[in-house]
Design a protein around this nucleic acid. Structure first.
Lengths: 110, 110
DNA sequence: TGACATTATGTCAAATATGGCATATCTTAA
DNA sequence: TTAAGATATGCCATATTTGACATAATGTCA
């Protein structure tokens, strides 16, 4: 299960290194990663609900289709800033964003 | 009031330009800026509550005192990523972060 | 099957964010 | 007042993130 997750993340490009290092990820680090992944998933859902293509969303946020694809795939080389700005451009409220964030696994529940 | 706020932001380095442009800030843009400012304020409070100096917090997040100062002052050249990582390093839960974010003014209430 | 739309992946130069450092300014206590 | 600690500001070389583009892969529908 741990291993599965590690593979899932590594396939997405998260340079996690050895299994030891993975197991040694601090709670903050994994909370941060999970938060980004949640935002990725949510962005995808929001775009779909609006029935937009990645190209259309890209235009909306003045970015490119490839960057939208990377956002939605949870590419580590995408900032939370961009994820949040994209959400806002899609009409997400602060409360919407808050829900996404509070639903990611909590680092303080170690 | 608008003018006061404009000045407040400009003093912090937000390049807002003319008053027209300021008034023309899209709801998303101002929601984004407000979100960062809330995170800035909250970071300051959290650090104070823990009775840490900026130097100590900097060490905790492997950054520098000057960057901590910039974060807390709401310097626009600070990413939300860093603000969030700092919160997590200070023990903020996802729920804590969600509260900060949902308390910033909402872009969907135009 | 093929044609077409959509999404994924890789690359790169430009833009932005970073830590670190020096130094200025503010705060507090003696 | 002065000294010392804390915070703010400016700068810079490096690192990361960016939009853009090409192209591959996947999906969809006839």
């Amino acid at each position: 299960m741990r291993e599965t997750k590690k593979e899932r993340l590594e396939k997405k490009g998260w340079k996690i290194g050895t299994a030891e290092q993975f197991l040694g990820l601090s709670p903050e680090e994994s909370a941060y990663i999970e938060m980004k992944l949640r935002l990725s998933e949510n962005l995808h859902h929001r775009r779909k609900r609006r029935r937009l293509t990645q190209v259309q969303l890209a235009k909306l946020i003045k970015s490119s289709q490839s960057r939208v694809a990377k956002m939605e795939r949870g590419d580590p080389a995408v900032s939370i800033d961009l994820l949040i700005r994209s959400h806002l451009a899609l009409g997400a409220s602060n409360r919407d964003l808050a829900e996404v964030i509070s639903s990611s696994r909590d680092s303080s529940s170690h």
